[in-house]
C-alpha cells in the first residue's frame, strides 16, 4: 500500500477519534476528569475562560497559572482548576461571591508537560472549560522540598507577605504564605498543606472561599481581586489544623 493511501486512511479515521465535544488539547485524561471532578455535568469549551501559563515550565516546582473568568461576569458560581496528568491533579476550588472577581493567579507543581484546566460553573448549571498547555521537563511534584532544606522554616510557618494594588474599580490582593505544602509524594514526609482559605471583610463576613490541594507549590503565592477598596482579611488553615490570618 502506498504512503499516499495510508495518509488518506489516516485523514478519514481522524474525525471518529475526535468525536463528541472535542477537547481542544486532545488529552486522554479529559473524560476521566469530566466524570470525577465535574460529575459528568454539561460542559462547553469556552474561550472566554482564559487560562494563562508560560509555554514551558522553567521551574516545574513553581509554574505560574493565571485564570480569568471575568468575561462570564456575575454568572460565575465556582471555579475548579486542575492539571490533567498530574499525580495530584487538583489545584483549587474557588467560590468567589458577589464582591470578588472570578480571577485567580497561583503557582503550582507539575510532574510532566500538561494541560491546565479551569472549569467555571455558571448559574445555569453549565461548566465552561478554559485550557492551556505547559511544556515541562517535569518532576516538580516529586522533587525534594526546598522549604524544608532552609534552616528555621518551622519558625516562619504561616508568615504572610502581601500587598494591595489598585486595578481601576478593583483592588488586587497579592500574597505569599510560608508553608512547605508537602504533598505526600516525597519519601518519609506525610501530607502537610494549606487546604482551606477564606477572604473575609472587616466584619468577618466571608467574601470568597478557596479550597487548596497539594498541587499548589511550596510557599503558595496567590493573587485575587475584590471590588472597591474595602479592608479584607485572609484566613488560612492547613490539614494539621494550624490557622493563620493576614490583613490586606
Amino acid at each position: 500500500m502506498s504512503v499516499r493511501v495510508l495518509l488518506l486512511l489516516m485523514v478519514f479515521h481522524a474525525p471518529s477519534a475526535l468525536a463528541a465535544e472535542a477537547d481542544p488539547l486532545q488529552s486522554v485524561m479529559w473524560e476521566y476528569h469530566h466524570k470525577g471532578l465535574l460529575n459528568s455535568e454539561p460542559y462547553v469549551f469556552d474561550e472566554r475562560v482564559k487560562v494563562q501559563v508560560p509555554p514551558f515550565a522553567e521551574d516545574s516546582r513553581q509554574v505560574p497559572v493565571h485564570i480569568d473568568a471575568r468575561a462570564l461576569g456575575d454568572e460565575v458560581v465556582r471555579i475548579e482548576a486542575w492539571a490533567d496528568p498530574n499525580p495530584i491533579p487538583r489545584i483549587f476550588t474557588f467560590t468567589p461571591g458577589e464582591q470578588v472577581v472570578p480571577l485567580v493567579a497561583i503557582r503550582i507543581r507539575v510532574e510532566q508537560a500538561t494541560p491546565i484546566r479551569a472549569a467555571v460553573l455558571t448559574r445555569d448549571g453549565v461548566w465552561h472549560i478554559g485550557s492551556a498547555k505547559v511544556d515541562a521537563a517535569g518532576g516538580g511534584c516529586t522533587a525534594p522540598s526546598v522549604v524544608r532544606a532552609q534552616p528555621g522554616w518551622e519558625d516562619r510557618l504561616g508568615e504572610v507577605i502581601g500587598g494591595r494594588f489598585a486595578r481601576g474599580d478593583f483592588s488586587r490582593l497579592r500574597l505569599q504564605v510560608s508553608h512547605p505544602m508537602d504533598n505526600g509524594l516525597v519519601g518519609g514526609i506525610p501530607e502537610f498543606f494549606l487546604n482551606q482559605a477564606e477572604l473575609r471583610d472587616a466584619d468577618g463576613q466571608v467574601l470568597a472561599e478557596l479550597e487548596l490541594y497539594p498541587a499548589v507549590a511550596e510557599n503558595p503565592s496567590l493573587s485575587l481581586e475584590v471590588k472597591g477598596a474595602q479592608d479584607t482579611r485572609l484566613w488560612l488553615r492547613d490539614n494539621n489544623g494550624n490557622e493563620f490570618e493576614a490583613a490586606l
Partner: peptide, 17 residues
C-alpha cells in the same frame, strides 16, 4: 521564573497577625 520572586518579596510587606 528565576528572578521575579525576589522583586515580589521586595514589593510585599508582612501582613500576618
Amino acid at each position: 521564573s528565576h528572578l521575579y520572586p525576589r522583586y515580589e518579596a521586595m514589593a510585599l510587606q508582612r501582613v500576618d497577625e
